[in-house]
Every structure is written in C-alpha cells, then in structure tokens.
C-alpha cells in the first residue's frame, strides 16, 4: 500500500511542526525518516495514522492517501484509519493488565471484535511468529506481558500491531530504549516485514537507517519558528553515499544534529 503525502502541514496550537511535506512512500519497503531533534519527523509519522491530532490543540492541513483513500477526507474516521495502520512506539508499552496472549490480541479485544478460541490461538501464534517472539514465549502465553525483557516487550508490541493485519507499519524510534542485541533482533525483523508491508521508521541512528532502509527521507527546520521541511528524499544508497543537498551532506557527515 503506497502512502502519498501532499502539502502536509502539522501544528501544535500555533507552533508549526511540519511544513509543506510532499512525498510518496513506496509499498513493500522500509522508509526511514531521519533528521535532528525537533525536525518534525515523529510528527510527520503520527500524521500517517492520525495520531497527531490526539494532542490537545494539534491540527493538520493537507492530505495523506493510502493508495486511493484520503485519510483526511471530511468523512474519514480517525479510529478506522488507526485500525488499518499499525504503530510501534519508542518505549515498549504492553498493557500491564493483560497476559502475553491477550496483549497480542488486544486490538480485537479492545475494539470489541469477537474471535473464536481457535481463531484467537491461530492469530496470536501467527503474529508472535511474524514478530520472531513465538519460540521465546510459546510456553508462557498466560504470563503478564510486562514480565518480558525490554526487547521482548517491544517485539510483543510489534506482534500486537501485526495481529490486526495492517498494510502499513509506523515505527517511532523503536530501538532507542533497547540494548544492542534486542536492536539487532528488531532490525532482522524489519527485513521480513518489508516483504508484505509498507514500513516507515523514524530513527536517530544513522547506521541503523543505512542498515534497514530502502529509502531515506531527511528532514530539518530551515529558519527559526518554521516547521520541519523535507530536505531530501531518495534511496538509502544515494542518500548516504551521494547526497545532493548541503544540509543532508552535513547531517550525514555528523556536522550538525
């Protein structure tokens, strides 16, 4: 499922966070959003599943389309949009009141969609297998989700997102709270996720972007009080080895941000 972002502006009250972004994010690929802190990359990500607007006073102008469906059409329901797009957060956030199995199926349960017992078991196993977590937890599906290690919790959250079969998966710095081994587990997972999903990942870690991304978008603010712009967008190969914009060259070389 291709994501087409057009003339997108996002605000927190008066504060302009994302300024006039146009980009097409291809399906079946990992696209990384990089840039210095405060450049609006997380905000842009959260516009793709309409999570930006849950912040009091936040607003969005412009359009985001998943294939042909305009997420910001007047009759589009943000709740329905979020059910179709999976999201993984910076810090693992399993529901503390739920077991591992219940966490994986939380989307269905919380939306009030009923599953038969066999359906639930199949879906939970599938999702946990896709998140590379099945072998580690298959014998303790009933223990609390919060009893897992940080890295396992994050894969549990990925399984939770995958269980609802989204076409798009958004990841907001999913490894920034994890140790190197857990980070590696998630990066390996991204390699299989890209086969069937459109993955968009925000990362502060340039070498991670270089390892996992097919395409890379560099964002930065241009002047004070101005929102984050999309400075340059291309294949990972081109962005890391042959960036065109001087700002991109500086950022990649570690001269700012």
């Amino acid at each position: 499922m291709t994501i087409a972002i057009e003339k997108l502006n996002a605000y927190y009250g008066e504060l302009h966070a994302v300024a006039g972004v146009n980009m097409v994010i291809p399906e079946r690929a990992v696209t990384a959003l990089i840039g210095p802190s405060g450049c609006g990359k997380s905000t842009l990500l959260r516009c793709i599943n309409r999570m930006h607007e849950i912040v009091p006073g936040a607003s969005v102008v412009g359009s985001v389309r998943l294939d042909t469906a305009d997420l910001y059409a007047p009759d589009a329901d943000p709740v329905a949009v979020r059910a179709r797009v999976g999201m993984v957060f910076q810090r693992p956030n399993p529901f503390p009141t739920m077991s591992i199995a219940e966490n994986v199926l939380a989307g269905f349960r919380l939306r009030g969609e009923r599953l038969s017992r066999s359906e639930a078991e199949t879906k939970a196993e599938q999702a946990l297998r896709s998140a590379n977590l099945w072998d580690e937890v298959k014998d303790r599906l009933k223990s609390a989700g919060t009893s897992l290690s940080g890295g396992q919790q994050q894969r549990l959250c990925i399984a939770r997102a995958l269980a609802s079969k989204p076409d798009v998966i958004l990841m907001d710095e999913p490894c920034s709270a994890l140790d190197p081994a857990s980070t590696q587990a998630i990066e390996e997972l991204l390699d299989t996720l890209r086969i069937e999903h459109t993955v968009v990942i925000v990362t502060h870690n340039l070498s991670q972007a270089a390892r996992v991304a097919d395409r890379v978008a560099f964002m930065a603010t241009i002047g004070a009080g101005d929102g984050g712009h999309l400075i340059e967008y291309g294949t990972a190969q081109q962005m890391f080895h042959d960036p065109v914009q001087p700002a991109t060259q500086d950022y990649i070389a570690g001269r700012f941000g």
């Binding site: 979020r82 989307g107 939306r111 939770r160």
Partner: peptide, 26 residues
C-alpha cells in the same frame, strides 16, 4: 501512563472503549 492511551488509540480503539477497557482496569 499516557503511553497506554496511545497504544490503545493507535490500535484503532474508540476513546470510550480505551477508558473502559484500558484506563479503568489499569
């Protein structure tokens, strides 16, 4: 925690169900 609200909302759960099924049990 606000993260639990976000986690539930991002799964496409309407706010009233987030309150009933996540906030109150937690």
């Amino acid at each position: 925690p606000a993260e639990l609200h976000e986690a539930a909302l991002a799964l496409g759960v309407p706010k009233w169900r987030v309150i009933l099924k996540v906030v109150l049990p937690t």
